[in-house]
Structures are given as structure tokens and as C-alpha cells.
Design a protein around this nucleic acid. Structure first.
Length: 539
DNA sequence: CAGGGTTCAT
DNA sequence: ATGAACC
């Protein structure tokens, strides 16, 4: 017998604001907003009560609400850290760690196993006396091993809101499992609030999409359960654009397909197209979706309109699959400026790698294989499109014997600038509004082989090459740079490349190995920056 | 739209 | 490897 899943969706309320309040509790009492560049990306509920809107221009908001306090949220590190902490904390409560993270502020929990285990306990309670009153509560166990860990769980009432306001026909089978799910959701949210100090909104249903939508229907600091028998009614009143995974493009494609030949026929309002799930379901069919969106997307979105979401909870791995840092500008047109931005971004990128890819011992958990540089040209019609180029990531970034500064120098000159050169092509003239540096293809580091260095404790007096050799162990890369001397202290770096493990083809790199992306002239590494400044002034 | 992610298709 | 689309 196939039973449905029990999925909980959690969403931290006004997340960036909550983090700010966490560090500065004074903020709790006042209306404030977090801004990034010119835009308010979120505001607390005090501000929302006044009428401050998300995605409002921050100057506009200030004009309208002169007392609104603005907090700069362009540095995401604290949000990222808090997000990770809440994620781990929550995951520790879910058997099998079945928790998927979506962005910084949302989690999906697959609690099916926990529910079924406790349903079995409940069934056992009924066994001894066939004619007795049904039990009204059970002790919900949060641990398989430790019977005393858990909470008291009513079984004939629902915790929180009902998505359509009505109770299901019965409290048996899958419905009962969702009832338990609602109490589990409440318990988990309480733990998060009590121990971590963050409020959340929760949704409970049989799949991720329904759970997420249920949770979004009552905020903040509330939860909602959506029973499958009400799913269609619940969905039908929504605009399809408000269904998760259906964005502007998909919505537009779907409506275009529906209204393509019909002109203004069937428009509920003159000039407007009815985009409710109900209307779309009745105006379209699965084939229309597949024809316009393609087989796989068409199938998926059509299912969504009917409350069907096959995608299970994909536990988010501890290690990110990519790390990227970006910044945006009004306009960037000179190589020297690009160079400076890339330098700054590279520092942040290295920091992120140290935080997210190293364990508490300072050992690398994963090694990115690829470096990718992305940018967004200005003016070119379509707004969001990025272009990127990638290349293998120099392994000097994993070196512990080099200063951050020297690694950044190397990255910018040997990695990002050449990629940038590739990006802008022959024209050598550009106007960009975004730069993004990323490391991707992160390979899990091989399990640490018996580590000789650990026998010697702190390895203070090794020379650099020894240190680096030790560090190189187990690097899953084909091209390993071995660095001779201290790049940080010398004007000209000397790099030796080991082509492969067995082939020690060592060559000393030409000191005059840099070529200017503008004029192509070759010059010494350290001269490049000055040279580009020359171009800058010359123009 | 900001800044950072993921997943999917090609 | 790259880009579209989603959060």
C-alpha cells in the first residue's frame, strides 16, 4: 500500500531582518528595512504594517517614510552563517537528515519516517482494548533510541491553521499522518524559536509545493496544514504565477499559448487574461502545456496545477556545489577597474572557500576544479542574461604556504583577467554592469590517508616546498602548481608546473609571461597594473 | 530589481 | 561548457 509523504516547509520570517535583529535587538521595536544597492530587499513586520514594500526603491521608501531605518545588507556573510546554523539545527531533528535548503530562508523536511514510526506507536495503543475510546494524544518520539525524547501530541486536533479553513472528512490514514505532521511542525518551530530565537512560518502537506504554498498562506510566525482533499480548491483561486516553480517566463508562455488565437475572447476583463489555476486548467490541457513548454517542463507544470509534485526532498549536501561572489555597477568600461574589482572579489571568494570548504582542522573537504567568470553586458536588450567563460582552477588556491594576497594576485592575473579577455572578445571595448567569480565542479576530497604530519604535531619549521608537498597530497587535479620561493615577498614569482604525477616535467615560467588584454604586449607580471593604468590615461 | 544559490536543457 | 529559469 502506497502512502503519501509528509512534508514540512519552513520559511524564516523576514529573514535578513531577523538576522539583523539578532545582532541588534533594538531594531525589533522599530520599522527598518534591509537594502542592497538601491533597493529594499526586505523589511521587518513593523515596517510592513506602515506600508513599506519589498523591492521598493530605497529612496522612494525614505521619501514616503522618513523615519524608516535602513540597514545595508550587501554583505551576505552573516545571513549565510545564520542560514547554515538554522539548517543544521533543524536537520538534527529530522531522521535521516532529510532536509533540503532553498535559498537562505527556506527548508523542506521529509518527516515521513518519523510520522510512520509514531503512527505505529499509536496503533499499538489501540490494540489491547478493541472497544475502548480512541486515544486522544500520544507521546511523539523524536528519537528511535531514546523513548523519553519527544513531545505530547494530540491526535484529534490540528496544530495551526487549515489551508481552506475546513477540517478533513476523517482523521484516519493519510489525514491522520498530516495531523501528526502539524504537531511535529509546531514542535520543531518551537524548538527553533526557543533555542535559536528565530520565528518561522510552516506548511504541512503531502509534497513540497503544497507544503510551501500552505506555509505561505499564513505569515508570520504561523503554520498551516493542507489536506489533499482540499488541494485543488486551494490551488484554483491562485494566479498561476504564484505557484512555486512557475515564474514570469513560464506564465507568459502558458498564457500566450492559451490566448494565442483567441484574441480577446475569454478575457474576463478587457485587456487582461485570467490566469487563475482554475481558468488555466479549464482553458488548457496537458498537450498544450507540453507543446508550449516542452515535454518535461510541460508535464511538471501541468501536474503542479493539480497539486501533484513528484520531486522529493533532496537533502542538501554539507558542501556547496559552487561558490560565487559578485558585484554590480552602474557601468564598468576600463580594464583597470575590472582588475580592481576582480581583486576585491577574489579576496571574498577565498574567504568563502576557507569557510565553506574547510573542516574544523583546516583540511579541505572539497576541491573546486573549475574557475568561472561571468559578466552582464549593459544595454544589450535582454536584461538578465549573463555570459561566462571558465577554465581549470589553479591549485595554488589550496596552498596554505602562501599569503592570501599572493594567491589573489595569481588568480587575478592568471585566471580572471585571461578569462575576461576571452569574454570581451576581439573588440576590446566593453560596458558591463556585473562581475561574478565562481569556483565550481567541487570534488569531494579523498578521505585523508594516514597523515604523517599528524605525528609531528604543529609543523612549524618545515620549509615551504615541504609544506606544499604535504598539502598537495590527494589533490584530485591533473595540473598541480608547485610554488618555489615566497610569491608574496618577491616581485616576480617563479612557478613550476608538474604536468602529471609521474612526469615531473618542470619548467621555469618566463617572467615576461603576461600579455595585456588591451594591446597584447607581453610584460612582467608586476608591471601589468601600471601598464593598464597607462591605457586608462591614454584613452 | 540585489546577491547568491540550484536545476534543467542544450 | 553555457545559458535559461527558478528561488
Amino acid at each position: 500500500m502506497l502512502r503519501s509523504s509528509v512534508i514540512i516547509a519552513l520559511d524564516w520570517d523576514a529573514f535578513y531582518c531577523s538576522v539583523e535583529e539578532h545582532f541588534n535587538p533594538e531594531l525589533k521595536k522599530i520599522a527598518f528595512a534591509v537594502k542592497q544597492k538601491g533597493i529594499i530587499c526586505t523589511c521587518n513586520y513593523v515596517a510592513r504594517a506602515l506600508g513599506v514594500k519589498k523591492l521598493q526603491l530605497h529612496m522612494e521608501a525614505l521619501k514616503q517614510f522618513p523615519d524608516l531605518v535602513i540597514v545595508n545588507g550587501e554583505d551576505l556573510s552573516r545571513y549565510r552563517d545564520a542560514s547554515k546554523e538554522l539548517w543544521y539545527f533543524t536537520r538534527d531533528m529530522v531522521w535521516g537528515g532529510k532536509v533540503e535548503r532553498l535559498g537562505f530562508d527556506e527548508l523542506f523536511l521529509d518527516v515521513t519516517e518519523m510520522i510512520d514510526f509514531n503512527i505505529a506507536l499509536l496503533d499499538n495503543l489501540h490494540v489491547p482494548r478493541a472497544s475502548s475510546q480512541p486515544v486522544s494524544s500520544l507521546f511523539f518520539r523524536m528519537s528511535k533510541d531514546e523513548p523519553s525524547v519527544g513531545f505530547s501530541c494530540p491526535v484529534s486536533s490540528v496544530a495551526g491553521n487549515l489551508a481552506t479553513g475546513s477540517l478533513p472528512g476523517d482523521f484516519r490514514g493519510d489525514n491522520l499522518r498530516l495531523v501528526l505532521g502539524s504537531h511535529l511542525c509546531h514542535y520543531i518551530r518551537s524548538q527553533i524559536l526557543d533555542l535559536k530565537g528565530y520565528t518561522s512560518s510552516g506548511g504541512v502537506s503531502i509534497n513540497k509545493t503544497l507544503a510551501k504554498m500552505a506555509g505561505a498562506s499564513h505569515k508570520p510566525n504561523q503554520q498551516t496544514v493542507l489536506f489533499p482533499e482540499f488541494a485543488q480548491d486551494f490551488l484554483d483561486t491562485y494566479d498561476i504565477g504564484r505557484i512555486p516553480w512557475i515564474g514570469h517566463k513560464s506564465k507568459s508562455i502558458i498564457l500566450d499559448a492559451i490566448y494565442k488565437a483567441t484574441d480577446n475572447v475569454n478575457h474576463t476583463v478587457e485587456g487582461e487574461r485570467d490566469a487563475t489555476v482554475f481558468n488555466v486548467r479549464h482553458m488548457a490541457n496537458k498537450q498544450l502545456f507540453i507543446n508550449s513548454l516542452g515535454q518535461s517542463s510541460g508535464d511538471k507544470l501541468w501536474d503542479l496545477l493539480h497539486g501533484v509534485d513528484q520531486t522529493g526532498v533532496q537533502p542538501t549536501p554539507d558542501m556547496p556545489t559552487q561558490i560565487s561572489i559578485e558585484d554590480t555597477f552602474k557601468s564598468l568600461t576600463s580594464v583597470i577597474e575590472v582588475h580592481n574589482v576582480l581583486r576585491r572579489l577574489s579576496y571574498s571568494l577565498l574567504d568563502r572557500m576557507y569557510i565553506d570548504l574547510k573542516d574544523s582542522n583546516g583540511d579541505w573537504l572539497g576541491h573546486p576544479q573549475t574557475a568561472r567568470l561571468s559578466t552582464r553586458p549593459r544595454s544589450t536588450g535582454f536584461y538578465g542574461s549573463r555570459i561566462s567563460r571558465s577554465d581549470s582552477l589553479p591549485s595554488i588556491v589550496f596552498s596554505s604556504s602562501h599569503s592570501r594576497g599572493s594567491i589573489v594576485d595569481y588568480l587575478v592575473d592568471r585566471c580572471w583577467m585571461p578569462l575576461f579577455s576571452k569574454l570581451i572578445g576581439d573588440a576590446k571595448i566593453f560596458d558591463i554592469v556585473l562581475l561574478n567569480v565562481a569556483v565550481v565542479n567541487i570534488e569531494k576530497s579523498p578521505a585523508k590517508s594516514s597523515d604523517i604530519t599528524s605525528f609531528f604535531g604543529k609543523k612549524k619549521h618545515m620549509d615551504n616546498s615541504q609544506l606544499y608537498d604535504v598539502h598537495r597530497e590527494g589533490l584530485p587535479v591533473t595540473k598541480r602548481a608547485k610554488v618555489v620561493g615566497d610569491y608574496a615577498d618577491s616581485e616576480v614569482a617563479h612557478f613550476e608546473f608538474l604536468e602529471d604525477d609521474d612526469e615531473d616535467v618542470i619548467f621555469e615560467e618566463d617572467s615576461y609571461n603576461e600579455s595585456c588584454v588591451v594591446c597584447g604586449q607581453r610584460m612582467m607580471n608586476f608591471a601589468l597594473e601600471a601598464h593598464m593604468r597607462f591605457h586608462e590615461l591614454g584613452d
